[in-house]
Design a protein around this nucleic acid. Sequence first.
DNA 1: CGACTTTGACCGGCGC
DNA 2: GCGCCGGTCAAAGTCG
Length: 442
Amino acid sequence: MNTNNNSNNYNMSPLSDHQNKPIIHEFDFFSLNNTNHASTSAPPLHHCTPSSLTESKVNTSLNLLTTNTSSDQSMVEPDISNKSEDKRDKLELDVLQAELERKKAENHRLRNMFDEAKMNYEALQMHMLSLMQERSVEDCKEEEQEEEKPNGNGGVLIPRQIVDLAKDNEEGSKDEELVFDPDKEESDHENERNDSQVLAANNNTNNVSNFSAQTNVEEAEATMKKAKVSVRARSEANMINDACQWRKYGQKMAKGNPFPRAYYRCTMALNCPVKKQVQRCAEDKSILVTTYEGNHNHALPPAAMEMVKQTSAAARMLLSGPMTSPDGLMNSNFLTRTVFPSSSSIATISASAPFPTITLDLTQSPNNPLQFPTQTLFNQSGFSGLQMSQDAETSQSQQISQNLTADPDLTAVLVAAITYMIGVAQPNDNDTKTNNNNGNVI
DNA sequence: CGACTTTGACCGGCGC
DNA sequence: GCGCCGGTCAAAGTCG
């Protein structure tokens, strides 16, 4: 039997072509150096040239610009020329000043819009933070109650919830597809329903909150270590750039898929246990499915670390399943729809496998599928405030935006997914700093 | 020459 | 027990 692929047609070389993709620079409305800017781009008036006037669409209607130079004109008709030139200059000055005022007003309006959006964002963030703190207090109370009742049904912390779901599945409910399986053609809506139904059911059976204290940390961590993160993204390349170094150690033909599955190990550190599988989707060969497994035992590249800090809380919230809101119940897809709104991505947790799998589906972005919504990701995630101070957040936001804009690959997405495995799931010695940054239990 | 990929062989889990 | 299948190993080949 030979299930290996001997053809070069599907060579899974990790060479990425992401460098060839165009970098989209965002327009900075408020940059003083931006020459396109409305209020600051107008050149000083004394630098106005005939060409610039033409560009400003100022029609003097004087037809003065002939082949003669101004010095020639002054030699012919010095008085008339001077007067008309002054008049023209004044007219131009008035027009330009009016234009300047208009641009200033527009700039002011844009600033107001920006400030308003910023305030809304901060208000939401503060609201989120207060909710989390509230919940944290409840967790402490429930933890105390839990210690008094060791056999209680509650105490389902975030990782534990997955353990329970996985257990339920192993105990005979294997037929029940809890969530999205990338290899099956099920509608996302159906999966969302299943997801929320199961999680809600789980919630109902546990009268105590899902966010209560953890009573079996070791068990949960063991599961988390074996949990997987799967990322579906459209890519022509055979492997997407995720800021880590990988070494291929095998390739097999998997049943039910004409495309080979490639196996990689992380080579950024000796004995790093992290592995990943890369395979094209059988239904749509333009979709690349990358599945990560294990926890890094080393520090990640700076670009990856930045996103780790930003997205770990998001991953935790995703894992937390349903969360209550003033509007009622939100299913686990809420978060990733929030984090990745412009890409229409969907993140789900699957407990149908022996170990839970998080799937990030980034294939539904209508435009430029490999273009990660970088600015949107950071701005919309809004959970960073749970982990760091406002000042740190501000500086990091700029840093992250720059990093991501400079590298519009799927790096951020993958790191976001890996985050769950690295910084959140396991308190590695080498990752202690990261975990401390992510320290809050949501 | 070292790092990496390729690829046939091997191993263990699982279902029948 | 047997075969299927997924995952891994390791020798050979390739590349810079």
